[in-house]
Design a protein around this nucleic acid. Structure first.
Lengths: 232, 232
DNA sequence: GCAATAGTGTCTGTCAGACAATATAGG
DNA sequence: CCTATATTGTCTGACAGACACTATTGC
């Protein structure tokens, strides 16, 4: 039987999702419009939900993903927990934030059907891994973020930048087969600055995480690039 | 007024502390003997406590630190949250784990007064940042760890190894003034392999995070080393 | 052949590891 | 002077960035 140990009043515990993709060379995140903007400090927020007794954290991630976005769970990883007392004006909520990495194709298709969701472009003021808040834009318009979600999205960008070099995290934004240019676009979107092609190619191949498929991309007007895939 | 939003039954939320130090060239962690070893799967566990309504995560860290160890809060940082359904056989508990970094001197003094606490040496099977469980020893004896605390301690070592190079995390184990050899000992303990002195010196000074004080260590039989401190 | 992009070769500066040499304290 | 440690100097190999070059495709 699933039960809790303590019977004292306790804070609520929630999972918030940063569903990320790279669209047109820009890092983007799914945000949800809220009706209670005045109460929670902004009109847009990360999709999330309470952790119920009997559900693990990963169960909750899957449930929120299916219920609010309507797509099957993708690769996700835990970012951090946020527990400041005043972060939610309605009461004490501890949020455990997850990153979910998606190729933009299937995600855009699903978002077109959900008017309450938008895919916001993320921008940060700071270089490298210094850290700070992030800002969300839709077209040219800044979106007001609820709770501490601007801080959370800043931490997301910081984490992505930090792990990009030595982990396969960048491939989460790509379909199973991709060109090296695709990977470079993802890295440039996350890092926020351009990279030189030959150095990037070599670094990527030296890491040994990807391998050539032998196939080539189709549909381009010029020389087609080779398709690669993540090993194993 | 501090309150919770949802009134449904919910999991317990706890904070667990990995209070770390480097003693005699080995990475060590404070563990607490448990009377309910049969129930929770092992005799030794990380000190921890439930997050109460009205306390932030940091408040809870400070409270647990004071109550169970008896020393003032030191530099700590969040590691991750653990929420598997069966991690605590008594009920569903989500633990948010923090690292607390201490110089060994004051910590050893305090531990001498608390028979229920021990300072266990940590060992891992895996090289670099591969990850996996950690094992705890007291003298030559392996200690049985409760809950998922062996996994947590493995993640702790992985995190320390990952952040050692580009963050001031190593200095948390040292008093305000220290020699470069002291820093090297800390790094060797965390990484689990020896380093070459001249390269280590230069890397450290090039990072620009520490500065010479002009003072020299005393009490040694041979040439005294210069004392350094963290900038700012 | 032309345009545009894919992919390669080469140079160079930075930096970490290895090792040797010098400096300085107590005895 | 001797010992043991601190500190500095030099060499070298790995590697990332910059840039120029070659290759391949559609038109």
């Amino acid at each position: 039987m699933t039960q809790s140990i303590s019977t004292h009043p306790k804070p609520d515990i929630a999972v918030d999702l940063t569903i990320l993709t790279v669209r047109d060379g820009a890092l983007c995140c799914v945000l949800m419009r809220r009706d209670d903007a005045v109460k929670v400090g902004g009109q847009w927020a990360l999709p999330g939900g309470f952790v119920r007794l009997g559900d693990s954290l990963e169960d909750t991630v899957s449930r929120v993903m299916e219920a609010k976005i309507g797509i099957a769970p993708v690769r996700f990883e835990q970012l951090a927990s946020y527990g400041a007392l005043n972060r939610d004006p309605r009461g004490q909520v501890i949020s455990i934030v997850y990153l979910a990495l998606c190729p933009s194709g299937p995600l855009l298709k699903e978002l077109a059907r959900k008017p309450e969701l938008t895919l916001a472009t993320l921008h940060v003021d700071w270089p490298g891994e210094q850290g700070g808040k992030a800002h969300a834009y839709d077209g040219g318009n800044a979106l007001g973020l609820a709770f501490d979600h601007a801080d959370i999205l800043g931490d997301v960008v910081k984490r992505l930048r930090g792990k990009l070099d030595y982990s396969p995290i960048g491939y989460g934004f790509l379909p199973p087969e991709f060109t090296l240019r695709d990977v470079q676009e993802v890295h440039e979107a996350i890092l926020g600055h351009p990279l030189t092609k030959p150095a990037f190619r070599r670094k990527l191949l030296d890491r040994g995480m990807i391998e050539a498929t032998g196939k080539k991309e189709t549909g381009g007007a010029f020389r087609p690039a080779e398709l690669y895939q993540v090993k194993e």
